[in-house]
Design a protein around this nucleic acid. Structure first.
Length: 544
RNA sequence: GCCCCGGUAGCUCAGCUGGAUAGAGCAACGGACUUCUAAUCCGUAGGCCACAGGUUCGAAUCCUGUCCGGGGUACCA
């Protein structure tokens, strides 16, 4: 797991250390001390409930404990302005502006402000999208594409060397039926049962006709091959338009060719976890705590998806990744426990694997749910959506909500009211700042001039600074949770405080000293917003 | 039946590793542009955080149960 880390000037560890020392000096039991900003700013900038957690064990009044801690606390001078104790026993700290001025200087000196180092020197793999090339990507896939890319960006932002990977099954039933569907359209005969009905299949069939003529034999691999080629090109284009790319495309067939599939079966067999029954080969999942055994190889001789998945994940381990992230839709949530169980049985450290499951997107159009099915050719494609509202809007829509939420995506709202899309709120803040700086330059201000931070004493200025100070902490938390919406929420708050500041404080004025100080604040804000948007893969426009 | 998610303002959703008065956007209503961008800001209204128990000094947050919705529960992926 990534280690908690802080930039040198961060105040949190100093306070926590001071509190821990204080507990020990008072002869109180040790505690994992948590400090967080209280909801009500009247209480201060940081609060801890440590005294409350000690009350029961020591039998003392929590307010008394808090006061004892307060009295015995030894802290570096100058940073803390006020310590207070409030019922039922909170210990509150008001941090002096001096600290925030130091933070401001730090942000301006470091364009990578907020960057973490917990993944430095380590390799990570993020597998996402991984849709089989049976049809265009739908809006549903878009959520995973954006989530996966943002997770990858978060890892990169924390120092990981990230491989973005796309895995697909090209040896199974789905692709076989795809080929048969194209063939049926080519010969203008009835589609196979469960065949793909979309019009794109007809287009592929006609492409085969154009390139190979009218006499292609039934069963020719060109049908499937052409379909895979054309559909994959379409998928790549859709992702590219969303600003998403993959470094590696892995496919199932490879693992047959290398013998990895057979080896996986025999290795599991050696562990006593494989048996034959009813003509099929079974994985004895019940022996590793699952509630039912699962089929590895069907009686037809064809493996289920499970077997190649296991071989594939072994392959990831063999490629020496320190951190492996799998991103699946909720429809696959039942498959990964078997895969992890197999890996564990084969002695791989599954702590390195993190599986993220996201819930589905329900499309709403005209106030009604849109039913989608790739097989029936009934869907809204990701490409259409991106084309209509733009990559930034699509990305923000998908990332602003938690992956566990069953997202309702109102197509009309996204299209008709895109002017009011919240992503513009963030981008507008950035563009405004750029314009202020440009204006300042035009008015003859030196943008990199020395400034006196003490001139930043308006409440809206301090509030903005306090928000900027939180950025590294937010990044750390997101590195742990891998929930990008936290970044989106943070950026919204930051933009909100900036816009408030903007409405109350004019930056460029005749007062050069004040202007210089405010330019510094504004530049720091730009730095944070730009870095945050970058983590989300959303552009930071200089003008709008 | 069993498993995984969710149920918070009219709508879409944050907040959930327990904290003090539950938030945002949209929708509604009322204000603010001779100023660095009004894609903004300020204000009003809107809530039994599905329901019922439990744990706790303290529960939207944790536990149990019920109800409702999504997904899974294949020799499909």
């Amino acid at each position: 797991m990534p280690q908690r880390q802080n930039t040198p000037m961060t105040i949190l560890p100093q306070l926590i250390q001071g509190l821990a020392d204080s507990l020990s000096a008072l002869g109180l039991p040790e505690r994992d001390i948590k400090l967080s900003p209280p909801n009500n700013p009247d209480f201060g900038d940081l609060s801890t409930n440590v005294a409350l957690t000690l009350a029961k064990e020591t039998g003392q009044n929590p307010v008394q404990i808090a006061n004892d801690i307060k009295d015995s606390l030894a802290l570096p001078a100058g940073l803390i302005e006020e310590i207070s104790v409030t019922p039922p026993g909170f210990l509150n700290f008001r941090i002096g502006s001096e600290y925030y001025y130091q933070v401001l200087a730090h942000i301006l000196a470091d364009s990578n402000y907020g960057k973490g180092t917990s993944g430095k020197g380590q390799k990570a793999n993020v597998e996402f999208v991984s849709a089989n090339p049976t049809g265009p990507l739908t809006v549903g896939h878009g959520r995973q594409a954006v989530l996966g890319d943002c997770v990858a960006r978060i890892l990169e932002w924390n120092g990981y060397d990230v491989t973005r990977e796309y895995y697909y099954n090209d040896a199974g039933r789905q692709m076989r039926i795809l080929g048969q569907s194209v063939e049926a359209r080519y010969f203008k005969i009835k589609l196979p049962e469960d065949g793909y009905q979309g019009n794109y299949i007809k287009d592929i069939a006609e492409k085969v006709r154009t390139e190979k003529g009218n006499n292609v034999a039934s069963g020719d691999p060109v049908f499937r091959g052409k379909a895979e080629e054309i559909i994959f090109q379409d998928i790549s284009d859709s992702l590219k338009n969303l600003n998403v790319h993959h470094d590696i495309f892995s496919n199932e067939r490879t693992f047959y060719d290398t013998g990895a599939i057979d080896k996986t079966v025999s290795d599991l067999e050696n562990e006593g976890l494989v048996y034959g029954a009813d003509g099929a080969t079974w994985f004895k999942t019940t022996a590793v705590g699952m509630d039912q055994d699962r089929v590895l190889i069907k009686s037809t001789g064809e493996p289920t998806y499970r077997l190649p998945d296991i071989a594939y994940h072994r392959n990831k381990f063999e490629r020496k990744f320190d951190f492996i992230v799998d991103i699946f839709g909720a429809d696959h949530s039942d498959t990964y426990p078997d895969v992890l169980a197999a890996l564990k049985a084969l002695d791989y450290n599954t702590d390195k694997v993190r599986v993220l499951i996201h819930q589905f997107v329900t499309l709403i159009r005209g106030g009604e749910k849109v039913k989608m099915s790739t097989r029936k050719g009934d869907f809204v494609t990701l490409a259409e959506l991106t084309e209509e509202v733009g990559a930034d809007v699509v990305r923000y829509f998908f990332i602003m909500r938690g992956m566990n939420s069953h997202l309702n995506f109102d197509l009309d709202l996204a299209a008709d009211q895109s002017e009011k899309n919240p992503v513009y709120y963030l981008q507008y803040a950035h563009a405004r700042i750029c314009n202020i700086i440009k204006h300042g330059e035009a008015m003859g201000l030196s943008i990199d001039a020395d400034y006196d931070p003490k001139l930043l004493d308006n409440p809206s200025e301090i509030r903005l600074l306090k928000k900027l100070e939180q950025f590294p902490t937010v990044v750390e938390n997101v590195m742990q949770s891998l929930e990008p919406q936290t970044i989106a929420n943070y950026l919204h708050d930051t933009a909100n405080r900036f816009h408030k500041f903007y409405s109350e404080c004019r930056v460029v004025t005749d007062d050069t000293k004040l202007s210089n100080a405010r330019i510094a604040l504004v530049k720091a804000t730009r730095n944070v917003i730009a870095n945050g948007l970058n983590i989300l893969g959303i552009s930071a426009p200089e003008k709008m």
